[in-house]
Design a protein around this nucleic acid. Structure first.
Length: 347
DNA sequence: AAGCCGGGGCA
DNA sequence: TGCCCAGGCTT
C-alpha cells in the first residue's frame, strides 16, 4: 500500500477544519450519497441541497424510488435540468430492485454499471460509503490538479485527462479515500476557485507550480467552446372550457432531445431566430438560454374547434386543469403560465 | 473525439 | 456575454 502522499496529508488537515457541514456528510449511507452525487452532477451545492432533502423525504428508500411513477420523479426533478439524470436515476432504482434483489452495489465497478452513474459518481459513492481507494475527477479536481502540477495539456483531451488521472491516483488516500476525494473537491470549491483563487489560504500553496510560475489564471486549459445555436420554439396552447373550468392540452416530450420526458404544450423547434410573430395572435417573445441553445419562445393560443383539432393532431397528450401547477414542465413553460392563464380567462 | 443535454449565478 | 457548476450518454 502506497504511503499517504505528503500533499494529501496537508490537504486532509485543512479539510478537517474547513469542510462545509453538508447534510449528506452527517451520516452517509449509500442511497443518500447516491442521490446527492446524481443531483450534484453539473449542479451547484447551493442549488442541489433543497432537492436532496425533498427526494429523501419523498423517496426514503431505493424501493420507494423504484415504485414511484416516473411522472412523480420527473416532477420532483423539475427545475434541476439535465432531465436524463432523473430518468436514469429511476431506471437504476428499478434495476436494483429487479436485478439485485434490492441490494445496492458495493464496488465502484458495480455502481458504474447502473444507468446515470459514470466514472466520477461510481468512485465518489464507493470511496465515501465503502472506503474503496478510487480517486474522483470532477471539475474541481481538474482545476486544482491542473494548477498544482501546471498541466498545460487541455483537460478535455486525452493527454490532459491522462495526466489528471495519474495525479489523482497518486494522491488518493488509501486509508481514507472518501475524505481525500471530498477534500480535493472542497479545495476547488472554497479556495482554488475558477476566478480569484484564495491562494494565501491554500494548504498546498507551497507545492503549487501554477502559483510559482504565475500560470494559475490559464489553468485548466480547455478547448474553446462552440457558439450557441439560435432556435425558435413555437408552442401551441389549446384551451377549452368544461363545466365552467378551463383545461388545456399537454403532451409528454420524447425521452431524447431537449426537455426529454417533461410535459409541455406541443412544441415545434426550428433553427434560426425565426420571423417575427404577430403579437396579436401569439404571446412572446420569451427568451431562454440553455447550455448550447439560445431559444426564443412564441405561444400560440387555440380555442374552440382549433383547440379540438390540435388535440387530435397530438395523440398521447391529455387535457389538464388550467390551475394545475404541480407538473413537470420546463422553465420556459413555467415562465409564461401566469400570462397564459390571464389570457385564457379573458377568452 | 465530439455533440448533446438545463438552469442559474457571477464577474 | 462567457464561464462554470461534486457529469453521463450517444454517435
Amino acid at each position: 500500500m502506497p504511503d499517504l502522499h505528503p500533499i494529501t496529508r496537508q490537504l486532509l488537515e485543512w479539510y478537517r477544519v474547513h469542510a462545509r457541514p453538508l447534510p449528506w456528510r452527517e451520516s452517509p449511507h449509500p442511497y443518500a450519497t447516491w442521490l446527492s452525487e446524481v443531483i450534484l452532477q453539473q449542479t451547484r451545492v447551493e442549488t442541489g441541497t433543497a432537492y436532496w432533502h425533498r427526494f429523501l423525504e419523498q423517496y426514503p428508500t431505493v424501493k420507494d424510488l423504484a415504485e414511484a411513477p416516473i411522472e412523480s420523479v420527473m416532477r420532483s426533478w423539475k427545475g434541476l435540468g439535465y432531465y436524463s439524470r432523473a430518468r436514469n436515476l429511476h431506471a437504476a432504482a428499478k434495476a436494483v430492485m429487479d436485478q439485485r434483489d434490492g441490494q445496492l452495489p458495493i464496488l465502484a465497478a458495480d455502481w458504474r454499471a447502473l444507468p446515470g452513474i459514470g466514472d466520477y459518481t461510481a468512485a465518489a459513492i464507493a470511496s465515501i460509503c465503502h472506503g474503496e481507494a478510487v480517486p474522483v475527477v470532477d471539475g474541481n479536481v481538474q482545476r486544482v490538479l491542473s494548477r498544482l502540477f501546471d498541466i498545460a495539456d487541455p483537460v478535455d483531451r486525452k493527454s490532459g485527462r491522462d495526466a489528471i488521472r495519474a495525479w489523482s491516483e497518486a494522491l488518493v488516500s488509501e486509508a481514507t479515500p472518501g475524505a481525500s476525494n471530498q477534500a480535493w473537491m472542497e479545495l476547488g470549491a472554497l479556495v482554488c476557485k475558477p476566478r480569484n483563487p484564495a491562494c494565501p489560504d491554500c494548504p498546498v500553496r507551497e507545492a503549487c507550480l501554477a502559483r510559482q510560475r504565475g500560470t494559475w489564471a490559464d489553468r485548466p486549459v480547455k478547448q474553446p467552446k462552440k457558439k450557441q445555436v439560435t432556435m425558435t420554439v413555437d408552442f401551441d396552447v389549446a384551451i377549452r372550457k368544461v363545466d365552467s373550468r378551463w383545461e388545456w392540452w399537454v403532451e409528454r416530450r420524447p425521452d431524447r432531445g431537449i426537455w426529454g420526458g417533461l410535459e409541455s404544450f406541443p412544441a415545434t423547434l426550428t433553427e434560426g431566430a425565426g420571423r417575427d410573430r404577430d403579437p396579436q395572435s401569439v404571446w412572446g417573445p420569451v427568451d431562454h438560454i440553455l447550455t448550447h441553445r439560445r431559444l426564443t419562445g412564441w405561444f400560440h393560443l387555440h380555442t374552440g374547434d382549433a383547440a379540438s383539432d390540435l388535440a387530435r393532431c397530438h395523440p398521447g397528450g391529455s387535457w389538464i386543469p388550467l390551475d394545475d401547477a404541480d407538473r413537470a414542465w420546463p422553465r420556459m413553460v413555467d415562465k409564461v403560465l401566469p400570462e397564459l392563464r390571464s389570457r385564457a380567462v379573458k377568452n
